[in-house]
Amino acid sequence: MFHLTLHLADDALIIGHRNSEWTGHGPNLEQDIAISNIALDQIGQARNFYQYAAELCNNNREAYTKFISSPAFHQVSGPIDEDDLAYLRDAMEFRNHLLAELKKGDWAVTITRQFFISLYQQLLYTDLQYSADKRLAAIAEKSLKEVNYHVRWSGEWVIRLGDGTEESHRRMETAIDQLWPYVGELFVPADFQLEAAASGLLKNPEYYRQPWLEKTGAAFEQAGLMLPAPNWYQKGGKQGIHTEHLGHLLAEMQYLQRSHPGAQW
C-alpha cells in the first residue's frame, strides 16, 4: 500500500513538475495558463497522495523506511511529512513511470505525453474511487474531476495538432515515435500493483491496456495519426530504475531542502 501510494504520488509530482517548466514560456498566454493549471492540479494530487503515504509511514516507520536508503531521509527527526517524501528520497527510490520524467520537449511532446498519462489516470482513478481503501478512493474521486479535464484538453490538442498544419502533423508523429516506447510500462504490473490487485484494492494495470488503446486510437483517428504497433518497451520506473533525466530533475527540485537540512520553508 505504501509503495502503491508513493507510486501514484510520484507520477503526479514528476509530470506536474515537468509541466510547470512551461510556466512563463507557453506558446501563448491562454495555453501558458492552461498548462500551469494542469501542473497545479497534479502537484495538488501528489500532495494528497504523499500526505497519505507519510501517515502510513509514520504508523509503521521501520517497515517502510527500510526501502528508502537516502541518508537525508533517515536524518529526519520526528514524524515525516509530504516534503520529506518528495525532497529527501533519491532517484532510485522514486516509483513513477518513465513516461512522466521524460523532458518536456516541444508542445507536441508535452501534450501527447499528457494525453497518454491522463487517459491512463482516468481509467485508473475511475476504478480507484471504489477501492476498499477509503483514503485512496477519496483522493481518486477528487482527482478524477481534474483528470477528466486534462484528458479533454490534451485530447483536443492531439486532434488540433494532428489535423493542423503539415508541420504540426510532422511534430506529432515525431512526438508519438519518441514517447511510444514508454507507453508499455503503464500496463505491466510492478510487485506492489500485483499485491494491490490480489488484495482487491485496485485492478491489475494490464486490464487498462485495451480500453486505453481504444480511446487513444479513436483520438488518433480524428487527428489523422497512426497508432504505432505494439513494440519493445522501456521499463523500470516502478522498480526505481529510471532514465537519466530523473536525476537531473530531482537535483534541481531538491537542492534547497538538501542544502539546508531540517530547515522550515
Partner: peptide, 10 residues
Amino acid sequence: TRAPSLRRKA
C-alpha cells in the same frame, strides 16, 4: 522548479 516545499511550489 526549485521551490523548497510542495506547498511553496504550488
